[in-house]
Design a protein around this nucleic acid. Sequence first.
DNA 1: AGACAAGTTGACGTGAACGTCAACGTAAAT
DNA 2: ATTTACGTTGACGTTCACGTCAACTTGTCT
Lengths: 160, 160
Amino acid sequence: MTSKPHPAHYTIRELAERFDVTSRTLRYYEQEGLLSPKREGAKRLYSQADKARLELILRGKRVGFSLEDIKDMLDVELLNAGSNRDGLEKSIARFEERIGVLKRQRADIDKAITELSNGKRWLEERLADREPPEDLKRRARAFEALAQARLTQWETGVGD
Amino acid sequence: MTSKPHPAHYTIRELAERFDVTSRTLRYYEQEGLLSPKREGAKRLYSQADKARLELILRGKRVGFSLEDIKDMLDVELLNAGSNRDGLEKSIARFEERIGVLKRQRADIDKAITELSNGKRWLEERLADREPPEDLKRRARAFEALAQARLTQWETGVGD
DNA sequence: AGACAAGTTGACGTGAACGTCAACGTAAAT
DNA sequence: ATTTACGTTGACGTTCACGTCAACTTGTCT
């Protein structure tokens, strides 16, 4: 049990390199209230908890949340410390909203993957039966036509 | 067969409203080479194909691609008109890369959904057994601890 | 002591993706 | 003929999320 699994705290560079961001970024996050590392004199010391928060922050970013959004989500504890019943319900509603956003986004991504896979297949076919450029031109329009066809299908659900 | 399923072309406002963007946005996309509607005099006329492209553009944006990325993807036909074998393979590689990005992003989203669902559940529990604020404070730390625990697990895979 | 790396705080700069505003054209309605 | 609605092209402003640079302190190695 005397093993030392992790350093217990990191310098700004260590954390920055580990997560492939710059130190400027970490200071900026602190300035925006997303991180609040301890200080040893003037120097910042990042704890495991800070590291965990950073991971959440970065994932939040990757999935498209703004820093302000992320701050709200991470500060949920503080938010509901200040407010009671009413604030709690509001917080819950916001969480549900975010979850909804993510689910829609997931659907978008699935569609995009399909598009790109189709595009890739199209390219691969071009590569396979390398035809004369004249024919290529004619076939090129098939791509847009395809996209349009897909769109037209959804359209029935959207209403015209 | 004399039915008129859709207008065949749209004004800038019609398209903007339908997709909930401003006309400025559409002009900007044109300026950046993402759209190229016909002109009737000075006015823009958007065809079905333009509409289809716009849909693709907007989804591309929603899943996090930059306009330049999107342009590249949509212009793939032109790209490979200029280049032959070599260009084709490069294009295919780029498509694969983008697909990879999206898949990673989808994984991120799934994780984020899990996080938020946990956060929501935590809030709901708070709401259910409304405890005295003192106890609340102690429990509040559970949230970060939880995040940290999850992080620690991954850590084994990342290496220290 | 001197050099050097790594940290700090301002302050200003930057790129993407538009917003906003001015000045103007055009087409239909009153 | 004038208003109203909608369109056009610049040109400049704005927000976010940092990048960059200067001037400085602090610790460490030689």
